[in-house]
């Protein structure tokens, strides 16, 4: 089953997503709480999918997505974003994010997006 790297600065969000994914057979191989760590962990763990928050300290999700796409153009990055961040999501899509999930996320939506990859 697909391996996932969860990137979010809120531990709460990481855990909710992790529980949701693990329940549905995904393997969460790592977590990162900022964009810089995310890039590092991506290289280390080489996960199939990355779920990426946008607003984060150090390096935001858009920049992190760009960096990850730079090192691996085939990387599958899913943006996890809140309502009201439309323009950021757009930037992330341009930066190469495959798709996005809107917080507060519903399980069916998350699964639909992740399974489409």
């Amino acid at each position: 089953m697909a391996s996932v790297l969860i990137v979010d600065d809120a531990a709460f969000m990481r855990t909710s997503l992790k529980l949701m994914l693990e329940k549905n057979g995904f393997t969460v191989v790592g977590e990162a709480d900022n964009g810089a760590t995310a890039v590092q962990k991506y290289l280390e763990l080489n996960p199939n999918i990355v779920t990426m928050d946008i607003t984060m300290p150090v390096l935001d999700g858009i920049e992190a997505t760009k960096k990850i796409k730079e090192v691996d153009p085939k990387a599958k990055v899913i943006i996890v974003s809140a309502m009201g961040q439309e323009s950021y999501v757009r930037d992330a899509v341009v930066a190469g994010a495959k798709n996005f999930i809107v917080k507060p996320f519903k399980e069916e939506h998350v699964l639909k997006v992740l399974n489409s990859l």
Partner: peptide
């Protein structure tokens, strides 16, 4: 605030 908003909505 962004994080609180997100978690609370969840």
């Amino acid at each position: 605030m962004h994080t609180i908003k997100g978690s609370s909505a969840m």
